[in-house]
Design a protein around this nucleic acid. Structure first.
Lengths: 238, 238
DNA sequence: CAGTGGTCTAGACCACGGG
DNA sequence: CCGTGGTCTAGACCACTGT
């Protein structure tokens, strides 16, 4: 099931979370790790590469792998994560209210994005997210109907990602996101606790499966005072 | 200078940009690429891994590597990129106005972040970015003075990153960014073309060198109607 | 079945950091 | 100088996709 380097990766993360390795510490050398994990050096290096990409360590040639402290646990929105997953990770008091669940014909733009014929059927779902009783977020999702058979309004009030990955067995692979700020529309004024003339943070995403087919178009509208986005990024030298 | 897999990575990017491989195409198999580039399979795979991470291709087991089309060129803000670099890439009509350039004592919080003694000297730089003549962005930067010797107000009106990487020979490695929305302060009302009561998009960044020392604290304040952030993200299955 | 990518190995050489 | 990480190789076996 799990590959060796993934296990090593997770083992080392646990060691860092347990405090076995603390921020500023240097991990054992790659050579030492090969002995401890009974793995070849390239396998160890794959695990370390992943730790480095995800912001856990910084590799320094000639010295070693230094454990980073980026308070990285406070809001891991970067990457592809659903509201429901965040909810669980952070233990927020959150509720979801499904306001729309219907089939409709794809707009020409959507049809093109999904690479489907015009007027194909897509599922449109709108959900309001309540945090501590306040209506903070409005999520609108569109799926090609044939990709998500059996999806119901009831499931949508929980985690759609869970249903897609665990029940349907699809694998979500990557996403493109865009963040902009727009004026609140009438719909948002109705559904969210915001005042007229307010600005809204809009996160538009395209989510793809591992065979690179587009699964989902999302527009997530956030009340600006409760919006926060955190990212860890490495610099690529061209 | 350049490693073999980096050269292959760049070669393949050029092929995709030239149209030799187009969106939806499948790249030659790893085996074929080993022959073409006279490299071992693991080396080819390193190049393909990087293409995949940066959103150029999607690898599909049993099938091949499919070229993606994510209109990825329109605004590459994700990652660590400076305003001046973006400016050049996009050919915007942009000007920079340095409004503050002074040495001052670090606040306790800054001293802690930089891991310097209290009251160490830091360089504070504030710059207004004008796009098409409008005052759109206010950037505030703080550097430990000893890390950026010879940095002047004049250099700051160009690219500080250029100075740091090319003149000082430092290597910028990674950054942590946070995006929030706040109410405009008096300072922003004075320096930017915004109205009272306006909201401002604030991007706070910590930028680190390759030995994991903190180089720079940045607060970048954007007029919301001209702000856009784009990200390509892969999903990690825990 | 053949062809694809995914993982792992053992060993080699190089480049960098610090004593 | 030695120990560190960075790169590269040749070969092996597995898992998945399509015919």
């Amino acid at each position: 099931m799990k590959s060796k380097f993934q296990s090593i990766y997770q083992h080392l993360i646990k060691d860092m979370q347990n405090g076995k390795y603390q921020a500023g510490d240097t991990l054992p050398s790659e050579h030492e790790l090969t002995e401890f994990f009974q793995a070849s050096r390239e396998t160890i290096r794959k695990a370390l590469k992943q730790l480095s990409e995800h912001g856990y360590i910084q590799k320094i040639q000639g010295k070693g792998s230094v454990v980073l402290d980026l308070q990285r646990l406070d809001f891991p929105v970067s990457g592809v994560t659903s509201f429901q997953e965040l909810n669980q990770q952070l233990g927020m008091k959150a509720e979801t209210e499904v306001v729309t669940f219907k089939e409709c014909r794809a707009t020409p733009k959507q049809a093109k994005q999904f690479q489907l014929p015009d007027d194909s059927i897509v599922l449109e779902i709108a959900r309001v997210r309540l945090i501590d009783g306040e209506r903070i977020i409005l999520d609108k999702d569109w799926f090609p109907k044939n990709l998500v058979p059996g999806l119901t309004a009831d499931i949508s009030s929980g985690s759609i990602y869970d249903y897609i990955e665990k029940t349907l067995g699809l694998t979500i692979s990557f996403a493109k996101k865009e963040i902009v700020v727009e004026l609140a529309t009438d719909e948002e004024l109705q559904l969210l606790d915001v005042d007229q003339g307010s600005q809204i943070v809009v996160v538009r995403s395209l989510t793809y499966l591992e065979d690179a087919t587009l699964l989902q178009i999302t527009e997530s509208r956030h009340r600006p005072d409760r919006f926060r986005f955190v990212e860890f990024a490495r610099r690529y030298k061209t």
